[in-house]
Structure formats: structure tokens, C-alpha cells
Design a protein around this nucleic acid. Structure first.
Lengths: 260, 260
DNA sequence: CGACACTTTGAAGACGATCAACGCCGGTGG
DNA sequence: CCACCGGCGTTGATCGTCTTCAAAGTGTCG
């Protein structure tokens, strides 16, 4: 059954940013709320794409399995974020990833045909979806570049600082939003490698105790660098605290120079 | 000055696929042809984004430079492909990459405001642009996953087979479209590593002599696997020869098992 | 023929994966 | 209350892979 979603949650949905309240209601009324327990599959790689999803609570992990049984986490999504943005437009109508809640979660699901029709009639949402996908493409490119050029320690330093931007956390003292095992998998490295990377980063002004992290010296860790001006180096630390995901650390410079 | 572009070239532009001839003409009339010599910069990382580009001849390399002076090639584009698809929508109005012709090239350039206006009036083009960006996002994700999970030899095997699909080459005998140095940089590895990877692949049914490559045994190299059905393994080799870029090798299975 | 760009090969070193052992903690059952 | 267990994370040792540096080989074009 359609269900009223708390206004706080609706405000967290980037897809709806700037969209008139009335349109949001119309759109939400076409969705059904689905609860999903930790470990259930929301959908699996290869299954036909039937819905578009908006997460309203919890945390969902996207991952792929390789033939030798290893799992690579593609991303971890939380409240307000969406699933299958580009899959619903793919000529090949099946899921490209597995989606599984890390913890008890709830999503709103929209039948794809209904949803495609809806965005045709709500151009503002279409535009948001467009910039969302454009942004994802950008981030994925950066990700690929990082994987190809950065050391494990750099990847970790970069990721943790981006986490702070994304979740609006206080750099100088925050809690990891999910387990180290999950972070390691997200970064495409082994848990042991992650653990050692963290140890290394302690020499660079970062302390970690369980899930509590404190980054004392941002600049020593590489600092925030806007992906668009990293060449000229005009970006300042904290440039990124505007909760803009496209500010990322492109190069943890200090670390590279000091070759730890 | 606006210039008439050969119909053959226009047919190669995915952005225009399915668009009425008349609309193509209208759109093209808003662009100016720009010649660009090998080694010139078409635009540089950090500069303001002023145009949208369609390549009409030659080959253009996108790359970024890290603070320690290393260059990472993001992609190599040829006739029919476009530049700055998502950059023109970015809130941060500056280039995210450097663009430099590998060889004498020509592009049509459109002032971004004019172009944005044009796609508003040509919904078919807008839709094409949308699916182009969605596809790029997908490929970038795959790329990041590959970088994180594949060995150098697997990356090379995968890349070469994708090249054949992309450029419609005969797997059993084709010429590399660009230098090994460029391919290595594109794959984020050193030239030496690339060279050794190729040597290794010779044991797996591939011969390379200069720029001539022949893949004798596709299945031994990992084969083509559709990214959407790789789990079930129902895809056949040659599944991908339909010149569909979204068919890629997700896992070079044989190679992994044989652990070369 | 020589200059130069491009590529290959070898040897040494850095880095990450893997395997194994152990510590820590929260929960369950006796 | 304690013993046991399983999930999670750390640490150490070893091994394979990729980078780096150095040298030599190949090819093309003037």
C-alpha cells in the first residue's frame, strides 16, 4: 500500500531537490514501501529490472560476485539515495549488481514503466535524475583512476575524508558508518590491507580506535582537493565542506611525496 | 565558419542515432569546425568549459596529470564520439581532464549555451545524450571494478577484446588502433607491465607482432561475457559482436582459474 | 646512416594478497 | 556466573605481482 513518508526523509532525497511539494507527493503516491531485513536480497545480478527504488531507511550494499566466489562491493547507499537510476534505461533489462541490506532497511519501489512515465511529466525530476547520473559517471571515473594510481593508504585516506563530506561528519571526531570489513570490500582491498593502511595513516595525523576516527591534520593526509582545480592547487582544505560530493581528494600529495 | 560534414561521418555519431536528418543539419549548423594538430591541447584540466565537441576525424586522448608529473589516460576517443557530455552540466564549470589529439584531428565545437538550448528543442538528441551518459557511468563502474580485481594480463585481454567490439575489428587478425604506450597508460599500468602481460597472453592463444594482433582462441582468453548475465554464464562467445559496447568481459574466467 | 621514438628484457625492490595465529567482544547456554 | 562460540579485527610471515631503473633491441624517417 502507498504510505506517507516522513517529511524529513523526503527532504533528504536528492532526486527531489527543488521539486514542488505537490509533485513529490504525486510521485511518492505511485510507490510502495518495502521492508527488507539484513541479509535479504533486494534484487540479484541478472534478474530482470522491475522497479526503481528510493531508500527511506537503513543501508544497502551493492556488490558483484566473481566466478571464484569473491564479492566486490560497488557502493553502500543510505537514506535518500536511489537504486537502478541507469539500469532502468539500459537496453539490457537485467540487474548489473546485487543489492542487499547491511541492516534492516526500507525502500519505496516504483514500477519502472510507471516511473518512466512519471519523469516524462515532471521535467524537474528528469533533470535531477540526469545530473545524478552525470555525477555518478564522474565519480566512477575518478574511482577508476584512483584504483589505478593510488596506494592502499591513499585510497583509505581519500575515502574517509569523502565519507565525512558525504555524511556531513566532523572530521576531527566521527564514527565509521559501517564496518571495516565493508569499507575494505568497498575499496577493493583485503581487510588485512585496510588494517595495515590505517596503522600507517596514524603517522599522518589520524587516530582510529574501534569505529571512532579522528583526523587531526587534514593537510598532512592529503587534504581536500576539488577535482576541477587540483592541477592549479588553488583549492583550500575544507573547500569541500559544503556537502558537495564532487569535491574529492584526487591526490594525497603529502603521502606520495613522503613515500610512506 | 560552419561547414558541411560528410554524411559518412554524421552516420557515425551515436548522439544523432535515430534523429531526423533535418534536425541533424540544424544542430550541425550551430557548430564550427576546429582543426587540432597532434600535441596541441584542445582544452586543459581546470580551464572553463566553453564548448561541447563532436570528433569528426582523428583521435583524441583524455588524461589527467598527478602532482608528481605522471599522466593517466582516461580514455581515447575517435570519430563520432563526443567530449564534455557531462562536464557541460557540471555545477563546477571547469574541465575535469586534459584533451589532446594523438594525431591530426578535427572536431565540431558548439558553444555550451547554444548547445543546451538546442537539446531542449530536440528531445531525441537529449534522450541520446542521456543514454550516452548512463552508459558511460556504467562503463566507468565496470572499469573501477576491473582495476580493483583484475591482474595486468586480465586487463589487457579484456581491453583488447573490447577494442575489437568497439572498432568492429576481426578478432582473429587486427591492428592496434594506437600505440602500446598509450594502451598501457589507458589501462593504468606501466609500459613494461603491459609488454610482459602480452608475452604471457601468448600462452593463451594470442599472437602479437608489432601492432598486429591475432586472438586465436577466444574462450581461452576469457571470452566475451555480457555484463548482465555473467553470473549465470549463459552468454556465448561472440555474443558481443553486435558492436554493442555494453558487452564486456567481466571476468576472464579461464585466466583466473589457470592463474597465469 | 644515424637520430629518435617506441618497445622489450632483466634485475631489484615495493606493495598487496594470502595463510595462519591470536585478541577482543557480545551473545548464548549450561 | 562462567564457558564457549562466532563475528570481527589485528599482526606476522611468506609469496606473487607490479613498479622502477637500467640496458639493449626494433623500427621509421629524414
Amino acid at each position: 500500500m502507498p504510505l506517507t513518508i516522513s517529511a524529513d526523509v523526503v527532504r533528504m532525497i536528492p532526486l527531489f531537490s527543488g521539486v514542488p511539494e505537490q509533485d513529490k507527493e504525486t510521485l511518492l503516491s505511485g510507490g510502495y514501501v518495502r521492508q527488507c531485513a539484513r541479509g535479504d536480497m533486494l534484487f540479484a545480478h541478472g534478474e530482470p529490472v522491475t522497479h526503481f527504488y528510493i531508500i527511506i531507511s537503513g543501508m544497502i550494499r551493492l556488490f558483484r560476485t566473481s566466478p571464484d566466489g569473491k564479492e566486490k562491493t560497488i557502493n553502500v547507499l543510505t537514506m535518500g539515495q536511489t537504486l537502478c537510476e541507469s539500469e532502468i534505461f539500459d537496453v539490457c533489462r537485467s540487474h548489473r549488481v546485487n543489492a542487499m541490506p547491511v541492516e534492516e532497511s526500507a525502500v519505496i519501489e516504483f514500477p519502472i514503466e510507471w516511473f518512466k512515465d512519471a519523469i516524462r511529466q515532471h521535467s524537474h525530476v528528469a533533470l535531477n535524475l540526469f545530473s545524478l547520473i552525470a555525477h555518478q559517471a564522474h565519480m566512477a571515473e575518478i574511482e577508476a583512476e584512483h584504483q589505478a594510481t593510488m596506494s592502499a593508504a591513499q585510497l583509505v585516506a581519500c575515502f574517509l575524508q569523502r565519507l565525512c563530506v558525504l555524511y556531513d561528519l566532523n572530521l576531527h571526531d566521527f564514527e565509521l558508518p559501517y564496518s571495516k570489513t565493508l569499507i575494505a570490500s568497498r575499496l577493493g582491498m583485503e581487510l588485512e590491507t585496510f588494517s595495515r593502511a590505517v596503522t600507517k595513516l596514524k603517522e599522518y595525523g589520524m587516530s582510529v580506535r574501534g569505529t571512532s576516527v579522528a583526523i587531526h591534520d587534514v593537510k598532512r593526509l592529503g587534504g581536500y582537493v576539488c577535482s576541477s582545480c587540483s592541477v592549479s592547487g588553488e583549492c583550500e582544505a575544507y573547500h569541500s565542506l559544503h556537502r558537495r560530493q564532487d569535491y574529492i581528494i584526487l591526490h594525497a600529495e603529502g603521502m606520495k611525496i613522503q613515500k610512506f
